[in-house]
């Protein structure tokens, strides 16, 4: 794979709601260089016709949760951790609604 640019790092960070300094972005670019060398090790492995392994154990289950109300959080517990709350609602800066 190609070397990753600082701009890509910065735009990835923006998408993750993270603000990086120039220095930090450069540090990540450098980290990518090591990663890319390790990825060469991956590239050497032939994975033709190999399925992705998503779960440690892959036998499908047949378990569903029954549609029965089992647990509501009391409103005090819902709002206890709320950084900002008004009249039972969570509050954020006004979002321009789609």
């Amino acid at each position: 794979m190609e070397r990753i640019s600082k701009n890509i790092v910065l735009s990835l960070a923006k998408g993750l709601m993270l603000r990086l300094s120039d220095e930090e972005a450069e540090n990540i670019v450098a980290e990518f260089d090591t990663l890319l060398k390790q990825l060469d090790l991956l590239d050497q492995i032939d994975t033709t016709d190999v399925q992705e392994m998503i779960y440690p154990f892959e036998e499908p289950t047949d378990f569903f949760r029954e549609d029965i109300v089992d647990h509501v959080l009391p409103i005090e517990d819902v709002l206890y951790n709320a950084p900002l709350e008004e009249e039972g609602y969570f509050v954020i800066p006004k979002v321009v609604k789609d």
Partner: peptide, 27 residues
Amino acid sequence: KTKTKMFSGAPVSFGLPANTCVNEIDL
């Protein structure tokens, strides 16, 4: 038309007071 949420056992509701039909999973 279910009684509970897709991924939690909190009730599905319409028109009830805000944040009274949720649990930690929905949040």
